[in-house]
Computed example of a mutant assay.
Amino acid sequence: MSDIPEPTFTTPTTPLTEEELAEYQQKLTDWNQELETYAANLDSHDKSRERALDNRKNAEIEYDKLIVYLAGGGLVLTVGFIKDITKAAKTTDVGWLLGCWICFALALLVNLVSHALTRMAADALLTDAPNWKNLDKKVNWANWTCLILVGLGIFVFLVFVFLNFPAHA
Rank of each mutant, 00 (worst) to 15 (best):
E62D: 08
I85L: 12
Q25L: 12
A39D: 05
E62M: 13
E6W: 05
A22E: 09
A89P: 13
T8E: 09
K57E: 13
A71Y: 01
A39L: 08
N111W: 04
V94N: 07
Y24W: 13
Q25H: 10
I67T: 14
T86R: 01
G74R: 09
Y24E: 00
T127E: 15
N131Y: 12
F104E: 02
L125H: 10
E20M: 10
T11L: 11
A142Q: 06
V113F: 02
S44V: 01
D30W: 07
W141H: 08
V68I: 14
G72N: 09
C100A: 14
D128T: 00
A22H: 11
L149Q: 07
K90L: 13
L42S: 00
D128P: 01
K138V: 00
S44N: 09
V68A: 12
I102N: 01
L16V: 09
T10L: 11
G73Q: 12
W141K: 03
L28M: 10
L35C: 05
L97E: 03
I154P: 00
T145G: 02
L106Q: 03
A71P: 05
T92L: 02
K83Y: 04
L70W: 10
T78W: 13
L28P: 00
F162Y: 13
N140R: 14
P15E: 11
W132V: 02
N140F: 08
A71N: 06
S2K: 10
E19V: 07
A40F: 08
D128L: 05
V94G: 03
F155Q: 08
K27H: 03
R51S: 02
F81P: 00
H168F: 11
W141G: 07
H168A: 14
Y24H: 15
L70K: 05
F157P: 03
N164D: 10
V76N: 08
A59C: 04
I61L: 12
N131S: 12
A71R: 03
L158G: 04
F9L: 09
A169L: 15
A22Q: 12
G153F: 11
F9D: 07
F165S: 03
K90F: 14
N111P: 01
F9G: 08
L70T: 03
G74S: 08
P130M: 00
A107E: 01
P12W: 02
E19I: 09
L98N: 09
K83T: 03
D93A: 14
N32T: 02
L108S: 00
E34R: 07
N131C: 10
N134F: 06
T13W: 04
A59H: 08
P166N: 07
L21Q: 09
K137T: 04
I61T: 10
V76F: 12
T13H: 09
N32C: 07
E50A: 06
K65R: 14
A39M: 05
V110A: 01
T13G: 10
V68Y: 04
G153T: 02
D136I: 01
W141Q: 10
D84C: 08
W101P: 03
T17G: 08
E50D: 04
D128Y: 04
F81T: 04
R119S: 06
D93G: 10
K57Q: 15
L66H: 12
R56K: 15
L147F: 15
K57L: 13
R51P: 01
L149S: 06
W31G: 10
